[in-house]
Write a protein that binds this DNA or RNA. Structure first.
Lengths: 142, 142
DNA sequence: ACAGCAAACTTGAACTATTCCAGATTAGGG
DNA sequence: CCCTAATCTGGAATAGTTCAAGTTTGCTGT
């Protein structure tokens, strides 16, 4: 598992460092986590890692395509390790919970704009807004 | 025109104030503007308006459904006065330019998640990412 | 195994968009 | 026309992120 991370880092010409391995492990175990949570998870293994290092690692991994950054309106940046399959997300308006949703049609990009305004479109990102099961069950939500 | 704004405010039980009328006028004339730009546009008419007033007004108008707040990843909040027709946006990855795109299918919400994970889905938001005509024409972009 | 070097990390400060707060002003119903 | 809650002003605070300078460390080549 750990050596798999090593191989993945080398495959994109990134040096193998402890902070990077710890971030990859954190994202394998926790989906849609924000930066603060990643920092906490990494420090559980490596207490002396700086917050700046985690920001740098997340940026490097995102640019290399090893992790994906998502940023639904109203929340801070979140990261996930499921990449390359163009899936989408459902976000709870009440509590902010996020869940994965497979592509609506099955192709990537799975949508085509009716009029592209002259833009060259590379990707369609979909966010479904709604209420999660927990919040829907709660009688008066907060 | 201005009295139309007044009617719209009264229709949603909001008091008619100069800052609110100025914000509505600014959003009529400029699409997809960020808060700083709204502040500048409002102050061109009413120099003494505080930034806090503009933040308050934008929030009140958004909650009342008179304006729509959009927040593509990597940018600050932007506002538009085209509401109620569930249209989407194309965003330029290079310069951040935003253009409107009509709903891909024509219904609101125009997409259905393949597996909703138990969420009650209220709305599907689509952001198309690509390159705008200007940036596509530039040989080496920045 | 080891030296050299650029990439990566640490520390600490700065920055930006937004929100909080307390007090003054104002729109609009009675 | 007056009263009161809604709104606005001015200033300070906060959260998330980035910048900058200097130190450490992984990797390449010998």
């Amino acid at each position: 598992m750990a050596s798999d991370f090593e191989a993945r880092l080398r495959a994109v010409s990134l040096r193998v460092t402890r902070p990077r391995l710890a971030v990859l492990a954190a994202l394998r175990d926790h989906a849609h986590v924000d930066t603060d949570t990643v920092i906490a998870l990494v420090r559980a293994q490596l207490p002396r890692v700086s917050h700046q290092a985690v920001y740098d690692v997340l940026r490097a991994l995102t640019e290399a395509g090893l992790v994906r950054r998502i940023e639904p309106a109203g929340t801070t940046a979140r990261y996930e390790s499921r990449v390359g399959d163009n899936h989408h997300h459902v976000v709870c308006r009440s509590c902010g919970a996020i869940a994965d949703v497979d592509c609506a049609v099955g192709h990537a990009p799975c949508l085509t704009a009716s009029d592209d305004q002259g833009f060259v479109i590379e990707e369609a990102e979909v966010v479904y807004w709604g209420t999660c099961p927990d919040c829907a069950a709660r009688p008066i939500d907060q």
